[in-house]
């Protein structure tokens, strides 16, 4: 090894892309979908419709951000939909009972956090599989919200709360701004904090991480708590939009969230994932539905297109990983 090559390698070590190669791939996918729909529909690429897409994607993006942290740390959270439902009925019934809105919001976030803590503790301390624990949670949290409400939606959400979640902030719909802030927080956690490194280390090689002194149990629990709290945030956005809290809301949310994370580059084997990628993944799924609706494509075919996009994304992902 001569000095010249050493010098360039040292230089390489200092230089870092702000945007990974995998994120670039997701970005290309997003651009292609935008290009295709802009060509097919004159309405698609207009300011109001783009804002519309962001708003429609915001709930899935919110869930998917938490899901990404869980997947990166080597887990999976199937219980996000029911956690959202439970948080929604808690918030709604407190608001209806006259509890101040900030307190009701805190209670909903607390409910989400508790569910995540319960999932995480069973996985970290009882050593159960994340898939099985959250599959149990899926039924458990759904049952709790159904029992709590007697199966009926909670109506009568205060207009102030509805006005807040349906209003604009900085010229954008408030939910979009909220999710953008959450994405920024998640990005910072994953890329800039020890906890983020722990997520990737535990997901990449749990035993090596433990031997190197990573607090494995706390790391796993943190990921599930993030996921639970973000499910609650998504629930609050939906409650504000609909003006009611249905104990059956959030059905199959986990699947859309996993799809967004996977399209964005998260590996279900753990250890890999990208916040920027997940946000783009959620927007890809959102714009696909939006575009197909604009073109009056039937719901059945929309489902078909979603499936094709997910599988195609994974095929491209696997092909590029092998060659790279």
């Amino acid at each position: 090894m001569n000095n010249a090559t050493n010098a360039t390698q040292t230089a390489k070590a200092g230089f870092k892309l702000p945007f990974g190669m995998r994120d670039f791939g997701t970005f290309i996918g997003l651009v292609i979908i935008f290009a295709v729909f802009s060509w097919l529909s004159p309405v698609f690429f207009t300011g109001p419709n783009l804002i519309n897409i962001l708003q429609q994607s915001s709930i899935n993006a919110c869930i998917a951000l938490g899901m990404t942290l869980v997947i990166v740390s080597g887990g999976i959270d199937l219980s996000v939909g029911p956690i959202a439902a439970l948080s929604a009925v808690v918030a709604a019934s407190l608001m209806v009972a006259g509890v101040p809105i900030p307190l009701a919001v805190m209670a909903a976030l607390g409910a989400g956090a508790l569910c995540g803590l319960f999932n995480g503790a069973l996985i970290a301390y009882a050593g159960l599989q994340p898939f099985i624990v959250t599959l149990g949670g899926l039924s458990l949290y759904r049952a709790l919200s159904l029992i709590y409400t007697g199966g009926n939606p909670v109506y009568g959400i205060p207009p102030e709360f509805r006005a807040f979640t349906n209003g604009d902030t900085l010229g954008l719909p408030t939910p979009v701004v909220i999710v953008a802030v959450i994405a920024l927080i998640c990005w910072t956690v994953l890329n800039k904090t020890p906890l983020g490194e722990y997520f990737m280390a535990v997901g990449g090689n749990q035993e090596a991480a433990r031997i190197a002194g990573v607090p494995v149990a706390r790391t796993k629990i943190s990921a599930f708590v993030f996921s639970g709290v973000l499910a609650a945030v998504a629930a609050l956005i939906l409650v504000g939009r609909l003006g009611a809290a249905d104990p059956t809301l959030g059905n199959l949310w986990e699947l859309d969230a996993i799809a967004a994370a996977a399209i964005g580059g998260a590996s279900l084997m753990g250890g890999k994932g990208s916040i920027v990628g997940t946000v783009m993944g959620a927007v890809i799924l959102g714009s696909l539905r939006n575009g197909l609706t604009l073109m009056n494509v039937q719901a059945f075919y929309q489902l078909l297109a979603t499936g094709i996009i997910i599988i195609a994304a994974m095929l491209i992902d696997s092909a590029t990983r092998k060659s790279g």
Partner: peptide, 27 residues
């Protein structure tokens, strides 16, 4: 038991000492 295969050398080096390498929670 040793390496986190897909993580860069730097992350493997700093794994036990990320907290020492952080200010106000940021690495």
């Amino acid at each position: 038991d040793g390496i986190i295969r897909d993580r860069p050398v730097t992350s493997n080096v700093a794994l036990p000492s990320f907290r020492l390498f952080s200010t106000l929670g940021l690495i």
